[in-house]
């Protein structure tokens, strides 16, 4: 389902009175990949938690509203998020491999909490194929420990795209993968986004990965949007200051 999301006047606080995130407005383009880039501590993950409705569980104080299609969701309400979080919005943690328990077959865990069985079948087969994973009968016999970390990460991705989310938030999904597996995962995500017309927020400090996957980039610094636009802006000289993430990325990008 392609539908719009808009964040308005979002401010998130942890212990101090200085907001860790301060966004007057943010409107990711539906059906595209928006990369949220920035250094550690710039508020990237907090933004992901906000969009996924997880802030009340993280001990944060938040104001502002997230508009999802016809829903207006205040960040300080847990009640209004019921039925949204985990359905319209899916959030994938950094190490999805850890989200699976070893004692039950993978398929059941991927479909956990999804009620609409009939609808799932066809879509599931398509998504598994796009992600290069085994078919449902095999997944229903296999246990998580029989798969590599990369495959489990793709399995977590596929389950995030079921049944029909508007928004998927992926927080550093390639942080623990080696380069061949990262590239593989990035290809899978771009194919899934195209296939399912989902709005995807990809949170990362890896500017090389951001350049490869982004349709649109939001560059955060100290909780505020410092720059926003085409992926090429990541290499904009105005962001190239000593000790900046752009400078460091360039110095670590020598091999090819």
């Amino acid at each position: 389902m392609t539908a719009g999301m808009k964040l308005t006047d979002v401010r998130v606080y942890y212990s101090s009175n200085e907001p860790v995130l301060d966004l007057p407005i943010l409107e990711p383009e539906p059906g595209k990949i928006t990369v949220i880039a920035g250094p550690t501590g710039s508020g990237k993950s907090t933004l992901g938690h906000a969009v996924a409705g997880l802030l009340p569980f993280m001990g944060a104080r938040a104001v502002g509203t997230i508009h999802l299609g016809e829903h207006a969701l205040p960040l300080d309400s847990v009640r209004k998020w019921r039925g949204i979080c985990g359905k319209l919005v899916r959030w994938i943690p950094q190490e999805p491999a850890r989200a699976f328990t070893a004692t039950r077959p993978l398929l059941g865990q991927m479909l956990e909490g999804i009620e609409d069985d009939l609808k799932i079948n066809e879509q599931l087969v398509t998504l598994l194929e796009v992600a290069g994973l085994p078919d449902p009968p095999e997944l229903s016999r296999s246990y998580p420990f029989e798969f590599s970390g990369g495959m489990l990460q793709r399995a977590a991705l596929v389950s995030a795209f079921l049944p029909d989310p508007m928004i998927v938030v992926a927080d550093e999904p390639t942080a623990h993968l080696d380069p061949p597996r990262s590239l593989d995962l990035a290809r899978t995500v771009t194919r899934l986004v195209r296939q399912a017309s989902v709005t995807l927020l990809w949170i990362t400090h890896d500017l090389r990965m951001a350049s490869a996957v982004a349709d649109h980039v939001v560059f955060l610094s100290e909780g505020r949007i410092e720059a926003e636009g085409e992926p090429g802006l990541l290499l904009d000289p105005s962001l190239y200051e000593p000790l900046s993430i752009v400078y460091a990325s360039a110095r670590l990008a020598q091999p090819l």
């Binding site: 061949p180 090389r208 490869a212 990541l234 091999p255």
Partner: peptide
């Protein structure tokens, strides 16, 4: 070779074509 080929460059055009 495989590690080099999957190593994304810091270059939007080249990185996207690899993807």
């Amino acid at each position: 070779r495989s590690l080099l080929e999957s190593w994304l460059p810091l270059d939007v055009t080249r990185a996207r074509s690899m993807l």
